[in-house]
Amino acid sequence: MTTSSQHHTATARLRRPSGIRSLRLGETKVTYVPDGAVQLTPRGWLPASTDADWATHAEYVDETGHLTAGIGGLLVEHGDRALLIDAGFGPRSFPAEPGSAIGAIQGGALLENLAALGRAPEEIEAVAFTHLHTDHIGWAWHPGPGSDSPAFTRADYLVAEPEWSQRHLLEAHGTSKETLDALAPKVRTVADDQEIFPGVRVRFIPGHTPGHAAYVITAGGQGSDGRRLIAFGDALHSPVQVGHPEWSAAPDHDSVRSADFRRRLVEELQEPGTIGFGIHFADVVFGRVRTEQGRAVWQPLDDDGS
Score class of each variant (00 low, 15 high):
residue 145 P to C: 07
residue 174 G to K: 06
residue 187 V to D: 01
residue 132 L to G: 04
residue 113 N to A: 12
residue 164 W to Y: 02
residue 110 L to C: 08
residue 171 E to K: 12
residue 116 A to H: 14
residue 198 P to N: 04
residue 79 G to A: 04
residue 90 G to M: 04
residue 95 P to M: 13
residue 179 T to K: 12
residue 169 L to M: 12
residue 183 L to M: 09
residue 142 H to M: 14
residue 110 L to W: 06
residue 89 F to R: 13
residue 63 E to R: 11
residue 70 G to Y: 03
residue 64 T to A: 15
residue 190 V to M: 05
residue 87 A to R: 00
residue 191 A to Q: 13
residue 141 W to Y: 12
residue 70 G to N: 02
residue 78 H to G: 09
residue 89 F to D: 07
residue 150 P to T: 07
residue 188 R to I: 00
residue 90 G to N: 06
residue 102 I to L: 09
residue 62 D to K: 10
residue 64 T to H: 14
residue 166 Q to C: 10
residue 108 G to V: 05
residue 120 A to N: 14
residue 117 L to Y: 09
residue 76 V to L: 02
residue 129 F to H: 06
residue 119 R to A: 12
residue 106 Q to L: 11
residue 100 S to R: 02
residue 147 S to I: 07
residue 174 G to D: 03
residue 134 T to H: 13
residue 184 A to F: 03
residue 179 T to R: 14
residue 116 A to V: 11
residue 189 T to P: 09
residue 163 E to H: 01
residue 134 T to P: 09
residue 84 L to V: 01
residue 155 A to F: 03
residue 99 G to Y: 08
residue 75 L to I: 02
residue 74 L to T: 06
residue 180 L to Q: 05
residue 122 E to P: 11
residue 112 E to Q: 15
residue 97 E to W: 14
residue 156 D to T: 08
residue 114 L to A: 08
residue 107 G to D: 04
residue 186 K to W: 01
residue 61 V to F: 06
residue 97 E to F: 14
residue 184 A to W: 01
residue 104 A to M: 10
residue 121 P to G: 05
residue 59 E to Y: 06
residue 78 H to I: 09
residue 86 D to N: 10
residue 102 I to R: 07
residue 67 L to S: 00
residue 166 Q to Y: 08
residue 197 F to H: 12
residue 163 E to Y: 04
residue 101 A to S: 15
residue 185 P to I: 06
residue 113 N to K: 14
residue 129 F to D: 00
residue 194 Q to W: 10
residue 187 V to R: 00
residue 91 P to H: 10
residue 86 D to L: 05
residue 61 V to M: 05
residue 155 A to K: 03
residue 161 E to S: 12
residue 144 G to D: 04
residue 165 S to L: 12
residue 174 G to N: 04
